[in-house]
């Protein structure tokens, strides 16, 4: 029995710690099973260093063909679950083949790692970064341990950030002009703008501003598009008359947004849109959608 149990149990305990683990910022991450765990946060060009300790269970020894640690950047499509596409893969050999009798600790370091893409957990796609420790063995499966971490990349404020201004309407029915103060917003930004009613011949009941996320995966004929409405923010209650101007002030911080991702490794894109929706008394909807770019601003 003992043997049998031992056969299915890992022969050792592997722990991965980061050298600045105590001070490094931790952020929540949602795992596949729905649980949220706190993981360290990195950004591109950072050194990722730490220690890996392997501790065999009491009275066990581990024979191995070598120990290595890999830093992987993976994209996982949910229609092709379990099949990871590695866009980044770095390896450090930790040990030559041999035996481990007792606890052994290996330092490791990946310096100035290029991690161009941010971690992302979407509807149909996931982009993740992970440290993978492998103890290869002659017989039996290799022993592996993973440590997820999150990557976020910051952008400076864009040098050009024009406002979005547009006049739209239905002839002889509704004519409006709207303006959003920028076309690019950072995650904690606030959208300021106004809607000016040039002509109103329909009985409007209310007006909302929606933030929509459009996630497209795959390419060509296999393109899969998923759209979510992340925010529905009422801008106006009641029917305006010609000449009214309605203010917009929408804080982005309450919503779970990510930066805009464009064509990540030819695998997927995440885009954001502002959707202005007018609803009339017969519940007909009139809307106009505008793309905005969302970026992550370095927090000072």
């Amino acid at each position: 029995m003992n043997f049998l149990i031992g056969a299915f149990k890992p022969a050792c305990n592997i722990s991965i710690t980061f050298s600045d683990g105590k001070t490094r910022k931790q952020v929540p991450m949602k795992k596949e099973n729905g649980q949220t765990v706190m993981v360290p946060l990195f950004q591109s060009q950072e050194n990722i260093a730490g220690k890996i300790s392997i501790e065999p269970f009491q009275g066990k020894k581990i024979e191995h063909n070598g120990v290595k640690v890999e830093l992987l950047g993976q994209i996982e499509m949910f229609f092709d679950r379990g099949n990871f596409y590695d866009f980044t893969s770095l390896v450090r050999e930790l040990d030559v083949p041999g035996e481990i009798y007792e606890r052994k600790t290996y330092p490791f370091e990946f310096s100035t790692v290029e991690m161009p893409y941010e971690s992302y957990n979407g509807v149909n796609v996931r982009l993740r970064y992970v440290l993978k420790v492998t103890i290869s063995r002659n017989y039996g499966a290799s022993i592996m341990e993973y440590q997820d971490f999150v990557v976020r990349n910051y952008s400076p404020p864009p040098s050009i950030n024009n406002s979005i201004k547009m006049e739209v309407g239905i002839e002889d029915c509704l004519h409006i002009e709207f303006e959003y103060n920028k076309s690019k917003y950072h995650l904690k930004d606030v959208i300021i703008g106004k809607i000016y009613f040039l002509l109103v011949r329909i009985k409007i009941k209310n007006m909302d501003l929606e933030i929509r996320r459009r996630e497209s995966t795959g390419s060509g004929a296999n393109t899969h598009v998923e759209t979510e409405t992340l925010a529905k923010f009422e801008l106006m209650d009641g029917a305006p008359v010609r000449g009214e101007s309605i203010p917009i002030r929408l804080f982005l911080s309450p919503y779970e947004l990510t930066p805009t991702h464009r064509n990540i490794n030819n695998k997927f894109s995440v885009k954001y849109y502002l959707n202005l929706v007018l609803v009339d008394e017969e519940d007909r909807r009139y809307f106009k959608q505008q793309e905005i770019t969302i970026y992550r601003l370095q927090e000072s």
Partner: peptide, 13 residues
């Protein structure tokens, strides 16, 4: 006073 423009319904406004 500016933000209150958002309510255009006569009674509620």
């Amino acid at each position: 006073v500016e933000m209150c423009r958002g309510v255009q319904h006569p009674i509620r406004g």
